[in-house]
């Protein structure tokens, strides 16, 4: 009678249609008939969750090693503590470790994708029939968050934060000079400035010269 040895490669793996579970380090045997009928087992084997190998069950029960209690006087402190190197994963016969990891990652990605698809399918796709009363506030907060992500403060503090790019729009409020009712007394003084006209004339000549050159 042909039997198959099923070993777990990824923790405890349930085989739903056989109502069995393969635990890590504790392989189980399934019959040929069970193996042929079980879709779950084949899929699990394909995804690298379990390893299935053909063989014969030994009738001799293997004696399980018993853990020995070791008495150490301060097992976690002092100079007598033996520093063991970190445990290395046991090599799996047949499939290279890298391949196993790749298979696990692939399986995880597939599962995540399926979950996301199921979640999206369950979400309502129709838009809300009426905008909520706090729409303005929501938009403001969303814009604020977006601006904050780009390094510019959201609370109308434009002279702080990252410098703006020249093509970035800048909001400038209107109505900055009031309603005209505020009259301030401004002291003025007049002075002679002999160089003013000369300087303006010199600047004009220079700019004309520059224009001619171009």
């Amino acid at each position: 009678m042909i039997e198959y040895l099923v070993e777990s490669l990824h923790g405890n793996v349930p085989i739903e249609d056989l109502k069995k579970e393969v635990k890590a380090g504790d392989p189980i045997w399934v019959t040929e008939e069970e193996y042929e009928q079980s879709i779950c087992l084949k899929r699990l084997a394909q995804r690298g969750m379990v390893r299935v190998s053909q063989g014969k069950r030994s009738r001799m029960s293997k004696k399980r090693p018993t853990a020995q209690a070791v008495r150490l006087s301060r097992p976690t402190t002092g100079k007598d503590v033996k520093k063991n190197p970190p445990p290395t994963p046991a090599p799996i016969q047949g499939i290279p470790l890298a391949e196993v990891e790749r298979m696990i990652q692939k399986a995880a990605q597939e599962a995540a994708q399926k979950t996301a698809e199921a979640f999206l399918a369950a979400m309502p796709t129709a838009p809300s029939p009426q905008p909520t009363g706090d729409l303005e506030g929501r938009v403001e907060r969303a814009v604020g968050r977006a601006i904050a992500q780009h390094g510019t403060p959201a609370s109308g503090t434009p002279s702080m934060g990252k410098p703006r790019a020249s093509d970035e729009p800048v909001f400038i409020p209107t109505g900055l000079i009031g309603d005209g009712s505020e009259d301030l007394k401004i002291a003025s003084e007049s002075s002679d400035d002999g160089g003013l006209s000369d300087a303006a004339e010199a600047l004009k000549k220079m700019k004309r010269g520059a224009k001619k050159k171009t």
């Binding site: 434009p158 934060g161 410098p163 400038i172 000079i177």
Partner: peptide, 25 residues
């Protein structure tokens, strides 16, 4: 001009505000 020792200071907004005030006058 833009300060070389404080790149966070923004002169574009500053200039825009004064341009608006002068224009509104």
């Amino acid at each position: 001009a833009a300060p070389v020792d404080d790149p966070t200071r923004d002169i574009i907004y500053h200039q825009g505000v004064f341009d608006r005030i002068v224009t509104e006058c």
